[in-house]
């Protein structure tokens, strides 16, 4: 049994310590907004924040975390789709199939937290998530809209 701090509350997770955070979130905590895409930290569909840092949850084990580390998932980004990234995404109709967008939004939110006015180069560096529908043009526009640039 491991204790995790997820979206501001402590949850008890009954899973093997080798279980990736991704699967503990999806299967034990019931938070399915964080997606499985590759399992090898390539695609970014499972991006969550750990103490504000964007992290690929498929490649962090449950056993490596403690209850003092704050995990935030897409479900905890805002209570009502009010984060500036979410609002910009809504305004520009960024998602197509949407499967990668939880991770995309979490990566973009982490970028803005660190760099409120990111350059194109900052966006290129921070946004390494894969989107097969090809929403990249709107992801970039959405980040700029949210940043007011």
């Amino acid at each position: 049994m491991a204790s995790l701090n997820v979206n501001g509350r402590v949850v008890e997770i009954d899973a093997h310590p080798d279980t990736p955070l991704l699967w503990a979130l999806r299967e034990q905590a019931g938070l399915t907004g964080t997606k499985y895409g590759c399992g090898i930290a390539q695609c970014g569909a499972c991006t969550v924040h750990i103490d504000g840092e964007p992290v690929r949850a498929c490649s962090v084990t449950l056993g490596s975390l403690n209850a003092n580390q704050k995990v935030v998932t897409i479900e905890g980004l805002s209570p009502d789709v009010s984060h500036p990234i979410q609002k910009a995404w809504l305004q520009l109709d960024v998602p197509q199939c949407g499967y990668c967008q939880s991770g995309m939004i979490m990566a973009a939110a982490a970028l803005l937290a660190k760099k409120p006015k990111p350059t194109d180069a900052d966006i290129d560096e921070a946004m390494t998530n894969i989107c097969r529908c090809g929403t990249y043009n709107r992801v970039r526009a959405g980040i700029k809209l949210a940043a007011g640039i």
Binding site: G33, E75, L90, D93, P95, G98, I105
Partner: peptide
């Protein structure tokens, strides 16, 4: 169909 794609729902 956009909103639920922004909050994990």
């Amino acid at each position: 169909d956009t909103v639920d794609k922004l909050n994990g729902k």
